Simulated assay, not measured.
Amino acid sequence: MQAVPMQSVYEAAGGTEGLVRLAAAWHRRVLADEVVSHAFSHGYHPDHTERLAAYWAEALGGPPTYSETYGGETEVVRMHSGNGPHEEMDRRAIACFDQALTDAGFTTDPLRRALHDYFAWATTTTMSRYHHSADDVPAGLPIPRWSWDGLQP
């Protein structure tokens, strides 16, 4: 008898549909937050929700749609770089994400914990690593992969 492979975080989250639902809930929350909404004050791509969901999907074990369609990690990190330290904004973005998890129906562990841990890690590490300039971000960064056990090598 063959062992059934454990679902990826992507699959457990309902695939692309579940992550689009989460991205939409998060986007609504951050636009309503007086601090985090500042990050979107310059505007945002009309397909932001779908792009964000595709990025999360790839990072969480889903298809490489983001990399194949929109670019890679370098482009994502550059969008989030060169704005100086923003710890309060990061904390609030994570709080908005936690609220969005509930809004999108992700209320039970271990899935809720895995999604929270991924978002908190990405927000406080890769997305906030290059405070001084987007030009400091190296080319060719791969999208980090996250699983039930955290960051994957």
Rank of each mutant, 00 (worst) to 15 (best):
Y66E: 05
L19Q: 11
R51V: 03
T123W: 12
V35S: 12
R92Y: 05
A120L: 08
T16C: 05
H132K: 04
E17W: 04
L19E: 13
Q2T: 09
T108W: 14
A134R: 07
W121F: 11
Y44I: 13
G150Q: 06
E73I: 04
Y44D: 12
F40A: 15
A114F: 01
R91D: 13
A95T: 04
R91E: 07
A120T: 07
E75Q: 15
A3V: 01
R129D: 05
V30M: 12
A120G: 10
S37W: 06
A12S: 11
H116Y: 15
Q2P: 13
A120H: 14
V20K: 08
G72C: 06
G140D: 12
T74Q: 13
G61K: 09
P110I: 02
A120Q: 08
Q99A: 09
Y66W: 03
H131Q: 01
Y55S: 12
A114C: 00
E50G: 15
H27D: 09
T123R: 11
H86F: 01
Q2I: 09
W146I: 00
A53T: 01
E68A: 12
Y70P: 03
Y130G: 05
G82P: 02
P138W: 12
A104L: 06
L111T: 02
C96P: 10
D90V: 02
Q99C: 09
R28I: 15
E34N: 15
M6Q: 11
T126N: 03
T65Y: 04
V137I: 11
T49P: 05
H45N: 15
V4H: 15
E75C: 12
R78V: 00
T69H: 12
Q99N: 09
